[in-house]
Simulated scan of single mutants.
Amino acid sequence: MFVDHEGADPNFSATAAVAGDRAVVTVTGEVDMSTADAMFRAATKDDAAYATLDLREVTFFDSAAIHALLQLADLYGERLRVLPSSQVHRVLEISGLSAQPWLVSD
C-alpha cells in the first residue's frame, strides 16, 4: 500500500492497493497543482497493468488534476477506469472529457 500526504490540503490522500494486476487508487480531498503529482505517482508506483482511480471522495479538481488524469489515460489507455465524484464529473463535463471511455458513470 502506498499513501501520499504531500499536498497542502491536510485532507488530501492518495492510497494505492494492488490486487492481482490492477492498482486501485483511492483519492480524497482536493486535487490541485500541489497534489496532482501525488495522485499520478500513487497510480503508477506499482507498475500494475490496469488501474482504477476512485475519485468519489474528491472535493476539488483543477487543471493540474486534469493534466495528471490525462497522463494516466495516455499511460493506461483502455486499461484505466475512473470513478468520479459529482464535482470531478462536472469539471470533466465542462472540459469536454465526460464521454471518455475510461470514465465510469453511475
Rank of each mutant, 00 (worst) to 15 (best):
D47R: 10
D32S: 06
A43W: 01
V82G: 05
S86D: 08
A38M: 05
P84N: 08
L97C: 00
A23T: 07
Y50S: 08
R90K: 15
D37G: 15
S86R: 15
W102F: 04
D32W: 07
S98Q: 11
T15G: 00
P101V: 02
V104S: 12
L97Q: 03
W102G: 03
A8N: 11
A17W: 09
E30A: 10
V104K: 11
G29Y: 00
D46R: 13
D4Q: 07
G7L: 07
A43N: 12
V27E: 06
E78A: 14
F61C: 03
R81E: 15
S34M: 10
D37R: 14
F60I: 10
S86K: 10
V24K: 08
S98Y: 15
E93W: 02
Q71M: 13
A14M: 02
D62Y: 04
S85N: 11
A43L: 08
V3Q: 07
Q71V: 14
M33Q: 09
S95H: 05
L92Y: 03
Y76E: 14
Q100T: 08
A99Q: 15
D4V: 13
H67E: 13
T28H: 02
G96Y: 03
R79S: 05
A16T: 15
Y76D: 09
A68F: 01
A64I: 06
A73W: 02
L70W: 09
E6F: 02
I66H: 06
R79Y: 10
V58G: 05
D37C: 08
V25D: 04
A65V: 03
T15C: 04
V25L: 00
L75M: 12
I66D: 06
M39R: 02
D32I: 02
A43I: 04
T26L: 01
F61R: 07
G29N: 07
S98H: 14
S13W: 09
Q100Y: 06
L55H: 13
T59H: 03
S86Q: 13
E93A: 10
A43Y: 01
E30Y: 05
V58T: 12
V91M: 14
H67P: 00
S13A: 10
V88I: 04
E78L: 14
L55R: 12
